[in-house]
Design a protein around this nucleic acid. Structure first.
Lengths: 230, 230
DNA sequence: CCAAAAGCAAGAGCACTGCTCTCGAATGTG
DNA sequence: CACATTCGAGAGCAGTGCTCTTGCTTTTGG
């Protein structure tokens, strides 16, 4: 048996805790996640876990980061798997469906990211980088559309206040995007997550029979609104 | 001192518990709501509360119902306060802003209704009637628009699967609404709640400076999409 | 090379939770 | 009046997050 160095051991234990925590998250959800249970699962006593994570919230934060990255991977993979890069509608549909598919496959994880924030919890800066990957996918596509000369269906003038409100996003982008177009893309973002949350949290339960068909319809109409459909 | 009958006393205690529970909900949120703390606040011992509510979840369910009704009241009041009943755009804006304003004023309550469902919790039938009041407001307006001959901006054909998926909603309505129009109204519903959740749960934090301006822009564009803007 | 320092697991313990059970006392009903 | 039901209080169980102390092991510095 190769004796493990202290650093190696620490890395292994940290991973073991995180892995069990993720498994428990998927099983019982974030609210019921128990430090003591995780400790039992990895063969530790509960107080030992606090050597690796100072609190349950910090552990949850680590899970949030990992989970954002997992969703980010799924979305980016789906988007980049579209062979015809000029087919912006296909790339948009890939993003939309990747988000919803991932959410349906990982409901507790989705709830952790996009459900009610844990009380008194404020996202630390560590979480922001992975968190913006999925909105970044939308914005990157918005930029590609802008570059391709695509125009969204827009019938409402953009107020000066709104133009000012969007400054941080414009700065995030490489090149400027027409404010009216940007509004449409942000609306699509809200619609996709709104639909996913309403569906997953049971608010469509008595209204819509076929969630798949409805989401296909919605994302199709969104693509049309964004001017991506020929 | 007039001696209280058993039924009177029970009603009073039930209300006292509910009132304290709602106060605590607003203060610390649904996850941190404590039966024991409520008991202390109303001058009871914790086990006595279980004479009135069989479990914490049942108490939460009662709160959910009351809260749905409160939001329903707010939305319906805002909608019906629009003097010019023919101004569908104004009525739509009233609904949208009532939802978001209520959510911002009652973030914990909004999280209880539209955030992650409590683990293992499935909405009992008691909650569905108050729950559909707000979506009902959208649908009633959709019907009014249909009756007025308003056409939404729709550029995507409605698939047969989608038409079938919408049957429960069509049955809920008094008269038929064109499926393409209905899709738009459901999209607006998703967008409003999506925006509100994303805003309230902190996902727009680093992107948008002026939430009010942005939401005004979004709801304005939604009204245009619905054909309500002349 | 060996002593001091730091890292770590274990256990006990605190304050809290939801919930159950039993026990008297008050209230209702035949 | 007697019986039955309802209710509040208290004790207690099993669980939680978290802290502190106690030894042991690994790492580090003179």
């Amino acid at each position: 048996m190769a004796p493990k160095s202290r650093a190696e051991n620490r890395a292994e234990q940290t991973r073991a805790i995180l892995d069990r925590a993720r498994a428990q998250l998927a099983e019982v959800g974030p609210a019921a996640l128990s430090v003591r249970q995780i400790a039992r699962d990895v063969g530790m006593v509960s107080s030992a876990v606090y050597r690796y994570f100072p609190s349950r919230d910090e552990l949850l934060t680590a899970l949030i980061i990992e989970t954002y990255d997992e969703l980010g991977d799924a979305v980016e993979a789906a988007e980049s798997s579209v062979a015809d890069r000029a087919d912006l509608a296909a790339r948009f549909a890939a993003i939309c469906h990747a988000i919803r598919d991932w959410a349906r496959a990982n409901p507790h994880e989705y709830a952790l990211l996009y459900g009610s924030p844990v009380p008194g919890y404020v996202a630390p800066d560590d979480t922001v980088t992975p968190a913006i990957r999925v909105s970044g996918a939308f914005l990157a596509l918005a930029q590609a559309a802008e570059h391709a000369g695509v125009s969204t269906i827009t019938t409402t003038p953009v107020s000066p206040a709104e133009k000012a409100a969007l400054v941080p996003i414009q700065e995030f982008l490489d090149g400027p995007v027409d404010a009216a177009h940007l509004v449409r893309w942000l609306m699509a973002w809200s619609t996709v997550f709104g639909h996913t949350s309403l569906e997953l949290f049971g608010h469509m339960h008595r209204g819509i029979l076929d969630y798949d068909a409805h989401f296909r319809q919605v994302s199709g109409q969104l693509a049309a609104d964004l001017g991506l459909t020929s």
